[in-house]
Amino acid sequence: MSSSFDKFQKRRLISSYFSVVLSIFLVLFLLGTLGLFIINSKKLADDFKEKIAMTVFFKNEANDTILKNFGAELKKAPYAKSITYVSKDAAAKQHTDIIGEDFLTFLGENPLQNSYDIHIKAAYVEKDSVAKIEQKLRTNPMISDIVYDKQLVNLVNDNIRKVSMWILIISGFLTFIAVLLINSSLRLSIYSNRFIIKTMQMVGATKSFIRKPFVMRSIKLGMLGAALAILALIGLLSYVNAHFPEFGIVEDKTLIILVFAAVFGFGVLITWLSTHFATQRFLNLRTDDLY
């Protein structure tokens, strides 16, 4: 009879530990996924910004020397991410490939101009910054026109600000929910041991002595849950990188390691604090209140 009861108690204890570890794992995995999304969302936004091209057209009077010197200056410019020279012959070929007909046969001459496609660094893709770059380039007398999508620049920056604000709000909300879920799981675990806590207190054990084994056990469970969450996050990163390598989500390993460290640290911190205060609550209760 005693053996059956001991087995039942052992199974209940294992089940309690499993539920705590599972809840910690799921919550930390979601938070870690959110953290990885946040650090990569900036990279994705920057990549999108840097795909917006500014095209600089040159007058026909601009010779090869002028064009080469301009290209050399652009390579030294702090705002230039990449530059591509497009000759008017190459531009004519591109137009012919697009429309499917050689328009030069109708016109008799090439009306297009030599140009440079400039992809600006993300930090400079702002309304004021791009306007200053355009103004500076227009001081070159050999430049006939500068073309880029001004509305797209404004739209991208406005939407990125809105998305960033909502990401911060959602992150804060999910973090609050995560704390509540982990805290509730640990409080239930401590609640099932409330009589043991009070019995130890009644025989003269100090509060710190009683609290220590519960805190240490919870920290170990938190570490286990965090370790499982990190392994799951590594699997998620590997899957996304294998199927979408163009995102380059594993390039910045330092930030990824920081996210993993934050997940592990959060798992340990929240389990320690929750167990400390939950145990303290039952230590301060009167014996009659336990029922």
Rank of each mutant, 00 (worst) to 15 (best):
234 I>K: 09
282 F>Q: 02
206 T>Q: 13
216 M>L: 14
254 T>E: 14
203 V>S: 08
248 G>M: 05
119 H>I: 04
110 N>F: 11
121 K>L: 12
19 S>W: 14
163 V>C: 03
13 L>Y: 13
90 A>Y: 13
221 L>G: 00
43 K>N: 14
225 G>R: 00
201 Q>L: 08
159 N>M: 09
169 I>E: 03
139 T>G: 05
131 A>S: 13
95 H>L: 14
11 R>K: 09
169 I>Y: 11
231 L>A: 15
286 R>N: 11
288 D>W: 12
116 Y>Q: 01
173 F>G: 10
104 L>C: 08
74 L>F: 06
146 I>T: 02
145 D>F: 11
167 I>L: 14
59 K>A: 13
93 K>F: 10
31 L>C: 01
222 G>A: 04
240 V>C: 01
114 N>V: 05
165 M>C: 09
41 S>W: 01
140 N>T: 00
124 Y>M: 06
289 D>V: 08
136 K>A: 15
223 M>R: 04
200 M>H: 03
4 S>W: 12
22 L>T: 11
116 Y>S: 00
244 F>W: 08
43 K>Y: 08
47 D>R: 07
21 V>C: 00
29 F>I: 02
273 L>G: 08
275 T>Y: 06
45 A>L: 05
119 H>N: 15
266 F>I: 12
146 I>F: 09
140 N>A: 04
56 V>Q: 07
87 S>E: 03
85 Y>A: 07
232 A>G: 06
4 S>C: 11
236 L>Q: 01
11 R>D: 11
157 N>I: 03
96 T>N: 06
120 I>L: 06
199 T>Y: 07
254 T>V: 14
80 A>P: 00
129 S>D: 12
17 Y>R: 13
275 T>R: 00
40 N>F: 00
129 S>P: 04
9 Q>E: 12
163 V>T: 05
110 N>E: 11
91 A>F: 01
270 I>K: 00
127 K>Y: 11
12 R>G: 07
220 K>E: 10
114 N>P: 07
51 K>I: 02
131 A>G: 07
28 L>N: 05
289 D>R: 06
173 F>D: 06
137 L>G: 03
135 Q>G: 11
180 L>M: 13
112 L>K: 07
286 R>C: 03
109 E>V: 09
81 K>P: 02
160 I>D: 05
92 A>N: 04
195 F>C: 02
229 A>M: 03
261 A>C: 09
86 V>A: 03
105 T>R: 14
188 L>H: 04
160 I>T: 10
214 F>I: 09
137 L>S: 05
136 K>N: 15
209 F>W: 10
154 N>G: 14
174 L>C: 06
202 M>E: 06
24 I>F: 08
233 L>K: 01
244 F>K: 03
38 I>M: 04
267 G>I: 09
213 P>A: 10
209 F>A: 09
212 K>F: 13
172 G>N: 03
202 M>N: 14
191 Y>T: 03
29 F>T: 06
250 V>G: 08
35 G>M: 01
157 N>F: 01
57 F>I: 05
56 V>S: 04
246 E>H: 10
159 N>Y: 09
285 L>I: 02
13 L>P: 01
28 L>C: 05
